[in-house]
């Protein structure tokens, strides 16, 4: 009985949260006239999707600093499909994700055998490889000058009924992007929650603790690792594709090593043990960075000092503060 009540509470609060994001926030922004906040919030939503991918790899006990590689790949796949082949953007979104997932299976087969810092270092290098690759094949990626002026997403209509309007005809495409991103984020974290509480999620946790032990009682660890990594890269690809569409451009330097490190920091800061960790971490990091813009040349100094202080006080993430009973356990 109490279990189902707890579930109801969760569902209601999630619905409320979504309602606030989709209705209250736009109203507030309209009231205050700060429409630049749309871009910030959209970025937070998308970055938290990409960070959620990193979180999945943490869930199988791997430190992934290569998410920028897949975000970049996803951005390029979407941009190239839209620009050169005239594919609808909405179709390229899953395609970019699938492309990244397929690529990550190929890359993951050898490197997922590595553990600990070895995996971390290889993935770090992977981000750099993707950037260099984008520079090395200018016939496809247009080299350092990147792909620019990508058209806004076109509409989707189904038997004459417009499901999604053409973004170019909208008075405020920023609001549209915001809503799409929030919906994507909700979908992503719903999936993540289901994943973490499913049978596969439990098995993933067994990998995080002890791979040999898990494998000795019949868990197919190689298969699970690949699945988790592919899921993670899928999210990276989708997020990257969305970003390319919003900024209407993609460059080899759109996602760099620093971004990959930031995705990892988002997860750490929010707390690795909590599904909502990446979302909170991204929000705090991104807004913290933005707020500090006023301090000009001291921005990075204050930002990093706060990060270090947070790490000293709350080494298990921000969410460990609100859930003390879990922390003690």
């Amino acid at each position: 009985m109490s279990r189902s009540r707890a579930n109801t509470v969760k569902i209601v609060s999630a619905a409320l949260f979504l309602l606030v994001l989709l209705v209250v926030v736009p109203l507030l922004i309209a009231a205050t006239g700060r429409s630049d906040l749309y871009y910030t919030l959209t970025s937070v939503a998308l970055l938290s999707i990409i960070s959620a991918g990193v979180w999945i790899t943490f869930y199988i006990g791997r430190i992934n600093i290569g998410q920028g590689a897949y975000a970049l790949m996803g951005g390029y796949v979407s941009a190239i499909l839209v620009m050169n082949y005239g594919v609808s953007f909405w179709l390229t979104l899953p395609l970019a994700g699938l492309f990244c997932a397929a690529a990550s299976v190929l890359i993951g087969l050898p490197i997922l055998r590595l553990r600990g810092v070895y995996f971390a270092m290889v993935t770090l290098v992977l981000t750099e490889v993707t950037r260099l690759l984008a520079l090395a094949v200018p016939t496809i990626t247009n080299g350092a000058s990147g792909i620019v002026s990508i058209p806004l997403p076109a509409g989707i209509s189904f038997f004459g009924v417009t499901l999604v309007p053409d973004f170019a005809t909208l008075a405020n495409p920023r609001l549209a992007f915001y809503i799409v991103s929030v919906l994507l984020m909700a979908l992503c974290f719903l999936g993540l929650y289901r994943l973490a509480h499913s049978r596969i999620g439990q098995l993933c946790q067994s990998l995080q603790q002890n791979e040999e032990l898990a494998s000795s009682i019949g868990v197919n660890i190689a298969y699970l690792r690949i699945i988790a990594y592919a899921l993670s890269s899928f999210l990276g690809g989708v997020g990257g594709a969305m970003f390319a569409s919003i900024s209407q451009s993609i460059y080899p330097s759109s996602f760099t090593v620093a971004d990959s490190v930031n995705f990892m920091l988002n997860c750490f800061l929010g707390g690795l043990g909590y599904v909502l960790g990446p979302m909170l971490g991204t929000f705090v990091l991104y807004f913290g960075w933005d707020l500090l813009f006023e301090t000009e040349e001291f921005q990075l100094l204050i930002f990093s000092t706060v990060l270090i202080a947070l790490m000293l006080v709350l080494p298990n993430g921000l969410l460990s503060l609100t859930l003390p009973h879990k922390w003690r356990a």
């Binding site: 943490f58 430190i63 990892m264 750490f268 800061l269 690795l272 990060l307 270090i308 790490m311």
Partner: peptide, 11 residues
């Protein structure tokens, strides 16, 4: 988790 030192190192 010992990975936390990586966040610290990055910071």
């Amino acid at each position: 988790r010992e990975e936390s030192t990586m966040l610290l190192a990055a910071a």
